[in-house]
């Protein structure tokens, strides 16, 4: 195959030091930590519900200097707006954009993380098996990946989401009244059906790169003496795969996991933007951007509906991609040119 075969070590010595010496990577990590903090604790700190409709429709960010016209409009709509009441403004229905961006962050990050985990499980298992078994199995498995490459996957996923989404929703609804499952499936769980289906479907299309990389590495690793030694000691294949090969792949896997997260977030927002993913009253960055795009017109520019979700999303994606790149440099010095 065409992948360059390099023999990796579990963690090149000093990987963490190399990573923290990279100023861009440190900045990316700080930004990501900040975004994660806001996503986790934001709703408990900031008092407005992202779904609460207020009379202040399409109010510009409230810290901006107040125009007389707007002040009059506020009074008509049921009272003045405090300076920090709506820092990112409000949308068409008077919902607070700041809260909605936070909720969007929660949804997008969860989908990104869990989707990447799904792709990690599928891709790693597939790559490990293909590389370790080798021969005809490997050949068939790689042909299958090539076949998937020549299908517009996201397009099939759109259809799949529409098929399985309502099923899962119905199942979650029924499960709440079943004698066993209602301990796990709490009331209101069907609201999360769309998110779960997105995680599954997107995870299931983003694993191809991971599988190829893992397979390439396993092909090189399995010829090494420590694998032979493990065989000679009578260890089972499963144990060799999990205890000897997998730890050696951690570096590559971490790198590709970091790069899969932004890919999944992008896919999710892509679908939500088209109105096929998360939809009102729930919010994700994609659906917020779609709302913002719909109110662009030549007379009024409601720029805050577009700017803030776009900034949050771009910042996250840029930080993740920078971190992924820096991790690759730190964990795999050979890849650096």
């Amino acid at each position: 195959m065409s992948e360059p075969i390099s023999i990796p070590t579990a963690q090149p010595p000093g990987a963490w030091r190399r990573l923290t010496r990279n100023r861009v990577a440190v900045a990316a990590m700080i930004i990501l930590a900040g975004i994660a903090f806001v996503a986790i604790f934001g709703p408990s700190i900031f008092p407005y519900s992202p779904e609460k409709v207020t009379p202040h429709s399409l109010h510009p960010p409230s810290w901006l200097p107040l125009v007389a016209e707007q002040a009059k409009l506020d009074l008509d709509h049921g009272g003045a707006v405090g300076r920090w009441q709506h820092p990112f403004g409000t949308d068409m229905n008077g919902r607070d954009v700041f809260s909605r961006v936070i909720q969007g962050a929660r949804v997008s990050l969860i989908v990104g993380l869990c989707g990447a985990l799904v792709s990690f499980f599928v891709g790693t298992t597939y790559g490990l098996i293909a590389g370790y078994v080798g021969g005809r199995t490997d050949n068939v498995m790689m042909r299958f990946i090539e076949m998937l490459h020549s299908v517009p996957r996201l397009i099939i996923v759109i259809v799949a989401i529409f098929t399985f989404g309502p099923w899962l929703e119905g199942w979650l609804h029924d499960a709440q009244s079943s004698p066993w499952l209602h301990y796990i499936v709490r009331p209101g769980a069907e609201g999360y059906a769309k998110i779960m289906i997105l995680i599954l479907c997107l995870g299931l299309i983003e694993w191809l790169a991971m599988a190829r990389i893992v397979r390439g590495q396993v092909l090189a690793l399995k010829e090494q003496q420590f694998v032979l030694a493990a065989r000679a000691l009578g260890q089972s294949h499963t144990r060799i795969l999990l205890r000897h090969l997998l730890p050696n792949l951690i570096g590559v896997i971490v790198v590709y996991l970091t790069l899969t997260i932004p890919a999944v977030i992008l896919d999710e927002s892509f679908l939500s933007f088209l109105g096929l993913g998360i939809s009102d009253p729930q919010a994700s960055w994609g659906s917020l951007l779609s709302d913002g795009k719909n109110v662009i017109n030549p007379i009024h520019s409601y720029w805050w509906l577009l700017l803030f979700p776009a900034a949050a999303m771009s910042l996250t994606l840029v930080a993740l991609n920078f971190l992924g790149d820096a991790l690759r440099d730190a964990l795999d010095p050979r890849a650096r040119r």
Binding site: F270, F273, G292, K293, S301, S314, V318, N321
Partner: peptide
């Protein structure tokens, strides 16, 4: 280039229109 890869087209598109 890395920034351009990260920023999705449905952000740049409306921004350019604006």
């Amino acid at each position: 280039a890395l920034v351009a890869i990260s920023v999705p087209t449905f952000v740049t598109g409306p921004a350019l229109v604006l």
